[in-house]
Write a protein that binds this DNA or RNA. Structure first.
Lengths: 302, 302
DNA sequence: CTAAAAGGTCAAATTTTTTGAATGATGACA
DNA sequence: TGTCATCATTCAAAAAATTTGACCTTTTAG
């Protein structure tokens, strides 16, 4: 199929003609001589094989085909302008899109002021937020489904990723007030726990070795998609399990959740921010710099 | 805001480079010399103010910005090709879109074979069907909401419209079997009718003088949007009114609807096809020609 | 190590576009 | 009914752009 011979310049000329009402006025606004405008239009018509103007009267009037080309042409011009802006932005080092992934173990609230500040200095970079659970964040980074993760647990499971510690989160074994386990002698043994369903946050990892949540097999489980739902369910006494201390401070203080000691207690988990090493855009750098600032862990409640 | 200096030719060159894998191969497929391709790319980069290729190695590789321009550029090229095709079609006299409106007094079945035949000779003209009720068709034509109406009743209410008679439709006053009116002495007087709700098809006219359905005021009415619903409702005995004979032949024959004589009976209505006079595209002509053929009225059941 | 292939540079050749002057046509307005 | 200004077009000349072809340097496959 013959490729379209159109020229963007011709579309701009067409736009100017319609906008200004005449070839002469268009020529003026384009800083050209009228005959140049006439020439461009004729060439466009010849190339398209279709008359774009009806010249039977004094003022050239658009034909149906001409109007069609004008209207589609304006959209095309808009698209090229937009593309140019995006490319310039990309060339200047600002990503067109930055995908940030927050592990559900963190509440994303501390991120919002950062986002706001970022948007005010660089509104053209689209920021896409997502949530992942327990190692899914590492996975998303590795699979190039995101560019920056906040709150990834432990160490990077593959190379090629860079990270920076954000803080530690203590995991406490908590049950609802009045739960049968609260009456048992502490520290609790594994056998005692076996009688109660454990609430597990689904690990959304896909291609990396799954980080198990360190729970023994053979117990009944309740699988939930987010930490928030896990807290909710444990709070209602439907199941037991480890919860990040900073997310349940309030319930502990109110007594509606109780911390129990286990024979083998879990070590605190280190949470990090992480990104792919190598080329970094300005937006990524901006976020990394701010997230590495002292006190950022505290901002996230760690 | 500076307008984008991009050239479609440059986008085509970019596309060829990516497609063929090298400047040299692209040059060959474009029937140019490699230095010409190099020149075009450099000019594009200069105009955009962004390097599109990473030349640190042997083969030039697209930068992020380059890939962005390539991908957006391909969409832009596609859009211009499509526009060109549409414009050529329009220039050849074929409408890009033809809007046909069928009055609900007709069943549109007879139109389908025509549509099929049309699509097979001119698949690029988009045909848009709509339905209007009782004079709404004239309105749609006048308001330029459609290009051709089929089954418009009576005469054109404004000038500037052309029409051709399609046939006559007899309107019969029909009620359900066993309806109290069937026991009355015929012809029925207006007073007798006053006791039963009349079913009225809503007139969707907007700006033209409304063609009333010729019913007396002061009676209770049931307003429905289509003839089909009017038939349904009268068939169930919920209301009375005139119906187009050709749409209720079956029910009359089966005896589930009965025709009653009125003191003042309605004259048959002439149905026409109509279009705006003046410029006509080939698609419109094609349909008019076929719809004016003898026997077309019969095809619509008239 | 060499030859082939890639991309680039540069001046000259070629093509395209712009210019400016001249022309005919149309419509506004006295 | 005549101006008269405005409009679009044509044409040759001028200017700008693109393309070419000869020649370079670098990289890589064999």
């Amino acid at each position: 199929m013959m490729t379209s011979p159109i020229t963007l310049d011709a579309l701009r000329v067409l736009d100017a003609i319609e906008r200004r009402g005449s070839f002469a006025a268009a020529a003026e606004s384009l800083y050209r001589v009228p005959s140049a405008v006439s020439y461009t239009v004729q060439k466009l018509e010849e190339e398209m094989g279709v008359p774009l103007f009806d010249r039977s009267r004094r003022r050239a009037a658009l034909t149906d085909a001409g109007r069609l080309v004008l209207e589609h042409g304006r959209r095309i011009l808009l698209a090229t302008d937009e593309m140019t802006a995006l490319a310039r932005q990309s060339g200047a080092g600002w990503e067109v899109e930055l995908r940030i992934c927050v592990d559900t173990i963190l509440e994303p609230d501390a991120l919002y002021p950062l986002l706001e500040a970022f948007q005010s200095i660089q509104p053209r970079t689209r920021v896409v937020l997502s949530e992942e659970v327990m190692g899914g964040a590492w996975d998303a980074l590795h699979d190039n489904r995101c560019d920056l993760v906040i709150g990834a647990p432990g160490e990077a499971p593959v190379s090629g990723l860079a990270s920076q510690q954000l803080g530690e989160v203590s995991l406490v074994f908590a049950v609802a007030r009045g739960h049968p386990l609260t009456g048992m002698p502490q520290p609790l043994s594994a056998e005692v726990l076996r009688d109660y369903p454990t609430v597990v946050v689904a690990d959304s990892s896909r291609s990396l070795p799954s980080l198990s949540s360190g729970l023994l097999d053979g117990r009944s489980q309740i699988i939930v998609p987010t930490i928030a739902q896990k807290i909710e369910i444990q709070h209602k006494g439907l199941g037991v399990g480890y919860l990040p201390l900073h997310r349940v401070q309030r319930q502990i203080a109110a007594g509606s959740l109780e911390i129990l000691a286990l024979e083998v207690d879990r070590a605190p988990v280190t949470l990090s921010i992480a990104w792919r090493s190598g080329r970094q855009g300005k937006a990524l750098k901006w976020f990394i710099e701010r997230l590495c600032a002292p006190g950022m862990g505290a901002a996230f409640g760690l």
